[in-house]
Amino acid sequence: MTAHVRFRVNGESHEVDVPEQRLLIDTIRYEVGLTGTKLGCGVGVCGACTVLLDGKMVSTCIMLTAHAEGADILTIEGLAKDGELAPIQKGFLKYGGFQCGICTPGQILAAHALLEYNPHPTEDEIKDWMMGNLCRCTGYYKIIESIEKTAAGEV
């Protein structure tokens, strides 16, 4: 049984026909062709597969594609505008908010969602929000600093 699903990804409309059990991460990677969304743990814990669905972060590894019907999806590829990186991307670059990079798309989308929700978070608020995005290189201090500096406009 095939699900016919319509949604927008980074502002562009898509219609896909996928098996009903197809997870959103696989649809984004293999139907839409955007591979910045990473599969990490596959059980909703690590945050590598984070996208923003109607502005809210979700784990695409535990969501059916059909549950994204009608949604506006933002993936890491959609954050830069007209070739210009978003402030949070600049912040991660400038302050070394990544090491190996596998968790980075999820980290950046989570941080972006945080700053949209709370433009001037405290360190505790950053930690509370970001605790669902794991970095196995354990570069957490640099990630927190990247967010703080971005919030302070120092990018």
């Binding site: 909703g44 945050g47 984070t50 972060m57 979700v58 784990s59 969501m63 969602a113 929000w129 669902g132």
Partner: peptide, 9 residues
């Protein structure tokens, strides 16, 4: 409960 990402859903 869990993280913001899970709680959103």
């Amino acid at each position: 409960v869990a993280t913001v990402r899970i709680r959103n859903v």
